[in-house]
Every structure is written in C-alpha cells, then in structure tokens.
Write a protein that binds this DNA or RNA. Structure first.
Length: 476
DNA sequence: TCTGGGGTCCTAGGACCC
DNA sequence: TCTGGGGTCCTAGGACCC
C-alpha cells in the first residue's frame, strides 16, 4: 500500500485550538453594541457572509450566503453586517498565536484563527486542564473565546475541537480531550457525527461516500482503507488511518515554501473598457509584487486572468488567462506590471462585461537562489506572441531594488497605496465596495478605541443600524 | 440590483524521450 | 501485413481547506 504514516515513538498527542466565529469575535472585543445580537462579517466587495455570530447562525444564515439574501432578515432582528477588516484580524491573530504558543514548544499556525500544538514530553500532564487554562488565558489576554480539541492525531484533534464547540457534553467548558474519553463513549460520539464533519471531507466526497453506505464518522473509521484509496485517493486513505489513531500528518512548524501568490478582486461594478481593466490588473500586480518582496521571493512567471460574472449565465461568458514568462526571475513591480499588461492585451476582447481580474505569480524562488539567465535576450513567451522586451539597462538592478524598498517602506508606514504607479489609475472606479468597515482599533493611532466615562455615550452614534457609526466607519 | 479571496494537493492524460 | 514499453514532465481539472 502506498500510504505512509509516522508510527510511534511519535505517539505524542495533538491539540487544535481555534477561535469561535473569529472575525465576529474580533469585532465584539472593541464594540460592546455587537454583543447579544446577530452579527455577520462580509467577504470582500461586501458580497457573502463569511463569519456569523451564534445569534446570526440561529437566524438560519449560512456560511458563504450572499449578503443581499439576508439583509432584510438581519435588519428585522437588530442585526449588524460589517465589511471585513483584515488589518484588525491579522493583528488579533498575531496576539492569539503568541498566547497559544506558550502552551507547547511545538506549534503549527494553520490558519488565521487556528493553531495545532503537539505535546511531546507531556506524559504526566493533565492535558484537559491545560486546555482549560489556555482558554482562560486567551479570554483574559485578548477577549477571544476559543475551543480546544485534543486527540492522538491532527484529524482526531480537529474532530475533538468540533465536539468541544457543538456537543452539550463539552460545550460549556469549550475543551474536549478524546484521550480522556472511554472507548465506548467515544464510539457513540463518532456514530453521531456526519462524515462531512471530518477534516478533509467536503460536500462532493461526502455525497460519494454516502452512496457507499458511509454516512457517519464511525462508518468512515471502519471503512476499507485500500478500497477507498483506489476509489478516491491517498488523501482520503490517510484520513481514515488518522481517524484510527495512526498519525499520517506531521506537525508543520515551519511553513512550507510558497508555491504561488495571488492577487485578485471582483469589481464594484462591471467593467468593459480596456484602460480600466488595465488599471485593475496593474493594481493587483503591484499588490502581488509587494507580497512577493515581503516573502523574500522572486517570480519567474506571471499569469493574468479576467472573468465575466458567472451568476449571469444569460450574459456572454468569457474567462481567459495568459501566462507570461519573465526573462529573469524578478520582484520588480515595474517589470511585473509590464508583463501583466502584455498578458492582458493578449486576452482582452471587447463586448464583455468583466466582473473580476487578477494575477498569479508562479515559479517562485528565494532571492538568493536566483541565477542569471544566459539566454535572456532570446527567450520568448510560450503562451503569448512575441518576446517580452525588457528595456532595463544592465547595472540598474541595485538602484531599482532600493526604489522598491523605499516604496514598501512608505506604504507599510502610511498605508497601502500611499505611493503607487500611475498605471494603477487615480479614480479607480472599479474598486470593490467596502461600505461597512470598522476602525483599525489596534494598528492605527487615529482609530484607537476611546474609553468613555459616560455610560451609553456611543449609543446614539447609530446603534441598532446595520452599519455601526463607529469612529472611522466608512474609512477607505 | 446585490453572489469572496487565497491557498494546497492529487490524478489523469498528453507530449516527449529512449 | 506487421507497429512496445517504460519513464518523466507538464498542465488542466477537481477536490479540499479557512
């Protein structure tokens, strides 16, 4: 069998810690008017609900549901909808991870609000008690509620975390340690959980598994691994082994090298003109280039894509992409902008209403690893007609790198877009909607929360409305 | 009217090589 | 008339995650 796993002595348990309704919880830390009422945080462009308070879930609002479908429902129930404030969430995440990391030397930051811990050498510790203390310390330190799941493998820790949040036996405490649950009771829990509750089983595979009479976690745990590997793939086979306590997924303490960097956005309004499309693509390329430099990488390829609105199938559809190789791996915004424009020119067609554009940087390599290209002058794009001319003169690289560093410095200090390329446009009428933004409470002096000694002083600033008129609301 | 963005991994199939 | 087998690399598409 082609499945590999990491057997004992690696018999150290895992914990999964994650914040409840993370984005909503972050907002609630700073605005007490958001407590005890339905709150949702919206995706970019104020499009979908990507985080929901328990009260919002109780109203039946689904994860990813379009905002326009729930707008009235929210309003009728004194609900609040907020644009996503990633500056705030990223800063809260950093603080959260620091506290979680104090509970084990082996930590993997898995997502913005999730962290795995591995407890090697903790044989004589009461891990359930550790979980309780972790929870208390996060709540006291930054005001976020978290759930803690503990199990023999990452997949079991994930499952335990789900029980910690949902199951009446654990919910009050917010901690579930499967290692402390007798086998018989554990079997009962697993028989009650749907197969889709397992980490790595989504809707498609869930439906396919149900056709094979595998409907619960217990069913999946008992399933024939070799058969599932044949009918699905090795990933599902590992999941089954993990459910049986065989650790196949190691803790990844260092993030693996990045494979790609994407920058893309939907437009606030449909765009048909080439010049506006070009502005948007330039803006995305500049953002991707900044991310690239931040990560200490250079890109060898840039992909450009544009797309019409898939939710209007009656309108003519078109979603092309072009790949443009760079003559030399680069992190220089000017070069990436130029290549992106070549790609866009190649795929643009008149007569379509475009709703989205983006760029992908690929073929990433650390700055130190880039070697010169002997044949730079003769290399030609594969997907794009004609060579990409590079007018950069030899010997100017150091100066350009310094220019990029200065630009990044200014934009980090004063906000993204403080210094930008004219190619990105000035008015930018294609920009996304972001009408319900809360202040950058923790990262901007002007937007720090103000403690008022007059109780209720902020009540009349718009409490009860959809957009909370907090200081800085609507700031772009 | 209004429907997100950024990632990863696996597999199948075609091109190409010897 | 008769027309192999095994390997690698690349890409597109599909699945998953938060």
């Amino acid at each position: 069998m082609a499945v590999g796993f990491f057997p004992p002595p690696a018999q150290a348990p895992f914990a999964l810690v994650d914040a409840n309704n993370f984005y909503v919880s972050c907002e609630r830390v700073f605005d007490y008017r958001l407590r005890d009422r339905p709150v949702v945080v919206l995706s970019n462009n104020d499009g979908c609900c990507v985080a929901r308070s328990e009260e919002a879930k109780a109203l039946g609002i689904r994860m990813g549901q379009p905002f326009f479908e729930v707008r009235d429902l929210l309003e009728r129930n004194r609900g609040v909808a907020l644009s996503s404030n990633y500056t705030l969430y990223a800063d809260m995440s950093r603080r959260l991870m620091t506290i979680i990391g104090q509970f084990s030397p082996a930590q993997e930051i898995y997502s913005i609000d999730e962290s795995f811990l591995r407890f090697a050498g903790f044989e004589h510790w009461d891990l359930t008690q550790q979980g309780r203390e972790l929870r208390a310390r996060v709540l006291q330190g930054i005001g976020l509620p978290v759930g803690v799941g503990i199990g023999a493998t990452k997949t079991l820790a994930k499952l335990a975390n789900r029980l910690a949040k949902k199951h009446p036996d654990f919910r009050a405490e917010g901690v579930c340690n499967l290692l402390d649950v007798p086998a018989e009771r554990q079997a009962g829990y697993l028989a009650d959980l749907a197969v889709e509750d397992v980490w790595g089983i989504g809707g498609r595979w869930g439906a396919k598994l149900r056709k094979l009479d595998i409907a619960t976690v217990a069913d999946l745990q008992r399933a024939d691994v070799a058969r599932l590997q044949r009918q699905f793939n090795v990933v599902l086979a590992k999941t089954v082994l993990e459910l049986n306590g065989l650790s196949c997924l190691p803790l990844e303490e260092a993030p693996p090298p990045r494979q790609q960097i994407i920058a893309s956005r939907s437009f606030g309004l449909p765009v048909t003109r080439f010049d506006l499309l070009s502005e948007a693509v330039a803006s995305h390329a500049a953002r991707a280039a900044a991310k690239l430099r931040q990560a200490g990488l250079r890109a060898g390829l840039i992909q450009v894509f544009i797309a019409t609105n898939p939710f209007q199938p009656e309108a003519p559809q078109y979603h092309p992409g072009a790949t443009v190789p760079l003559s030399l791996p680069t992190a220089d915004t000017t070069r990436l902008l130029r290549a992106a424009r070549v790609g866009l020119r190649h795929i643009y067609r008149e007569g379509y209403a475009y709703k989205k554009a983006g760029v992908v940087l690929l073929d990433l390599a650390p700055v130190g690893a880039v070697t010169g290209d002997l044949f730079a002058a003769t290399r030609v794009g594969t997907n794009v007609t004609g060579p990409i001319t590079d007018r950069t003169r030899p010997g100017t690289d150091a100066r350009r790198e310094r220019l990029m560093a200065v630009m990044d410095g200014i934009n980090n200090r004063w906000g993204r877009g403080t210094v930008r390329y004219l190619a990105e446009g000035l008015a930018q009428p294609w920009q996304m909607r972001r009408a319900r933004m809360s202040p950058r409470y923790t990262t901007c002096w002007e937007e720090l929360p103000v403690a008022s000694c007059f109780r209720g002083a902020r009540e009349d600033q718009g409490g009860g409305q959809l957009a909370p008129g907090a200081p800085g609301a609507g700031h772009l």
